[in-house]
Write a protein that binds this DNA or RNA. Structure first.
Lengths: 152, 152
DNA sequence: CACTCTCCGTGGATGCGATCGACCTGAGCC
DNA sequence: GGCTCAGGTCGATCGCATCCACGGAGAGTG
């Protein structure tokens, strides 16, 4: 991870569909050199995936909710996680410090579907309680932040 | 937005670097047809961006926090938003129902930087109080969910 | 110092993909 | 029927991705 790798990561965070030739121009190397560097960034796990960012409403996901989860005393955290993993509505899952062990971000089409999701969450073994907040609007999400030069 | 558009969106959510030729093979159209459809999806705002998803630690962002914001009675929500927008650490910003008007997801390098961010947030005009939860680990994030056939 | 090994690059060649323009076809409408 | 338009296909051209052979800088070693 030198300065050029950081530039490549930053460029691809801004636009994942840039061609290798274009990346090469931006960082001042040849296209094959860039190709190899990006390949290494991918296989070393620095770059995890390339994703199109989609307006959720236009694919029928109008409701966004953030849900805190309190585990009960019998909970096996791995089992709880596995149960969450099987619920496709849960887009993100953070393991938190504090009373609420997890914070989930879920997207569903309707409030009725959200209700069903919450019921399922509360029925999940190991879950003591849930606390749901509804997002009225998403001002922005996953905004890439400029990278400073300090990494492994 | 017909079924083919939905397939294209889903394919690109899974891998934003697929070539038009490959997309064309997957959906059973010619490459120019796919090119035109994707272009329309982009300009109509369904596809907002293409982003590389990066392991945060490897770009020096080891600390993730979720911060609830309570506005005070004098707050102008637009001004508060604008102030948040100028803080690059804030990756996502949701406007919420409930006592806490906003929920922010922030990423910083160190706990000390998080402390500074929280101080800045509390000093922001219109902000009455903040409540911060620290993510010990991110189990997953922005997982694309399979699309059902029902959209505009 | 000179040798060598390795890493990381460059340049050239080649086949595939992006992209443009010409043309085709079916639906809706007068 | 005949027009028009949206949305395809096909073919051609050019740029890009990708493979390969080669070269130079720096570290370790006699």
């Amino acid at each position: 991870m030198d300065a050029i790798d950081l530039s490549l990561v930053e460029l691809l965070r801004g636009n994942a569909r840039l061609s290798y030739a274009e990346l090469a121009r931006q960082v001042g190397l040849s296209a094959p050199a860039v190709h190899e560097r990006v390949g290494k960034l991918e296989s070393s796990g620095v770059i995890r995936a390339y994703r199109a960012e989609v307006e959720p409403e236009s694919v029928g996901l109008a409701v966004t909710a953030l849900i805190g989860i309190v585990e009960d005393s019998t909970a096996d955290t791995d089992d709880v996680l596995e149960a969450f993993r099987r619920m496709p509505e849960i887009e993100s899952c953070y393991f938190m410090a504090g009373v609420e062990s997890f914070l989930l971000k879920a997207r569903v089409g309707t409030i009725a579907e959200l209700e069903q999701l919450i019921v399922r969450l509360n029925r999940t073994p190991g879950v003591a309680s849930t606390r749901t907040g509804i997002a009225l609007s998403t001002k922005w999400e996953n905004r890439p932040q400029p990278i400073e030069s300090s990494a492994s």
